[in-house]
Nucleic acid binder design. Structure first.
Lengths: 256, 256
DNA sequence: ATTTATTATTTGTCCGGACGATTAGACAAA
DNA sequence: TTTGTCTAATCGTCCGGACAAATAATAAAT
């Protein structure tokens, strides 16, 4: 039971923490116990107020916790719906600058190699998450730390309507998707990345100054806008020893 | 200015959204403009209430946004301190099960190879983020999808007091750090991962069924507890073509 | 039966107030 | 100087109330 003694200054021995956290735990346990099955509606705020003898503030603060760990969805006018029995574990990646997502420092620079249209074939389409036959614009470039230190070979695929940004490749240190964001007013709402090992092809090996077939870290990044449409895909190949991709994930237990 | 008309039902034309969001933007701009420099204290809640003619609810809800994007820290009794001029961009990785962090399915299984104590040398210490001379327990194992399909070679380093979990390696499909969490009551609050390409050593190549020197994806995972102490480090080597590491990051713009 | 108003329900926003918990600062005592 | 105590400042928690906005349910009209 939540229901704490109404106004007894020193008699609240049973309570460990804030009331709304207590209530959140109770509701969480009830969801796990199928008292409110997934897909059904939870009691309204007012019903919870009456049942636990607490104010709406307490109820809303408790429900906020359930929102944060993805167990319920709420909609004004509609109500609170249970969407998951177990709280989804959330790890948060904090970035002070968007460059950290790319993990390249400001000093690195891109050097444009080629820029041409390509039609997606059966091999390319799944990588770009596009359809076979679609036309995209392919930009090949090399990222350098300084004059003689190539970090990686990058193939950038953008939609034909954005191919004009190829002109800015060399001039700016900004990542390509940031250029698209600024030039065309698109915002990257979702980024999916695939990382795997591979062997470098002969042509790229020469440009990167390593032997053909030597190990590389391949990173495929797909940038999606608000509607889920992919507007850029980049495929980077990093010869072994030149690049480490690091992630730091914090478990999202407490807000403050 | 925030200060909206007190009580005019249809006259709130100027306002775009909720008042607390308006206030949050104002405060955010003021922080960016060095009105409240990093390291200094912001006005108190009451001061902001008076200045903008809003209630404490509105102020607190606005400040909550600044907390969420990492611009301020607040402490009861102390006040609100600015810690960053630019809002930290946050990408959230949602996981329904902790296995998704490891990216191995339930069907995979670990097969124990060796289990012995090691003393950290100059090469190993930085990887484990420990001190040279420290004693750790090293467990070598191979992860299989089925009988004849090895996915990766894994070296697991745990603290000596936890070496007893080596017995459970084969019996359980659970990740090692989950076993530690359950057995010893530790919770992984932070996980840092490094991914890079390398060449497989001869001894491991034989076990994995590939040629010596062939490309591998190497993943170093460090699990830290609440105090920041590393309690497990795993080094996994995945021969090229057998494993892809995927991340899906959502930009954390809105809470609800 | 379908569409359109109307009404009721439910969450979102905002206010004012009250008290407790924690901290920082001032002061006194050792 | 150090330590402890007190006090004021400040955030955290919790309450009650009010209205707005969005939705769902109902009734009315076509």
């Amino acid at each position: 039971m939540v229901k704490r003694a109404p106004k007894s200054p020193t008699t609240s021995k049973t309570a460990k923490g804030p009331l709304y956290l207590e209530l959140a735990e109770v509701l969480q346990r009830e969801i796990e116990a199928d008292t409110y099955p997934v897909g059904t509606r939870m009691p309204t705020e007012l019903e919870l107020c009456n049942r636990f003898n607490v104010s709406r503030f307490t109820v809303r603060e408790a429900l906020r916790r359930l929102i944060d760990n993805g167990m319920v969805l709420r909609r004004q006018g509609s109500g609170t719906v249970v969407v998951s029995k177990n709280p989804t574990i959330m790890f948060v990646q904090k970035l002070n600058s968007i460059e950290e997502l790319l993990q390249y420092s400001f000093e690195t620079q891109l050097q444009l190699k080629t820029s041409a249209s390509v039609v997606l074939d059966a091999a390319l389409a799944p990588i770009i998450s596009g359809e076979v036959g679609e036309t995209w614009h392919k930009i090949e470039a090399i990222r350098y730390l300084d004059e003689k230190s190539p970090i990686c070979w990058t193939d950038v695929y953008v939609r034909p309507e954005h191919k004009s940004l190829a002109d800015q490749i060399g001039k700016d240190t900004k990542p390509v998707f940031m250029v698209i964001e600024k030039e065309f007013g698109i915002v990257a709402e979702e980024v999916t990345m695939d990382l795997f090992a591979g062997s470098i092809t002969e042509s790229k090996a020469w440009a990167m100054g390593v032997e053909a077939g030597s190990p590389t870290l391949i990173i495929v990044r797909r940038y999606k806008d608000k509607t889920g449409r992919v507007f850029e895909v980049s495929v980077s190949e990093h010869p072994a020893g030149r690049f480490t991709f690091s992630i730091d994930l914090l478990r999202n237990t407490k807000r403050d």
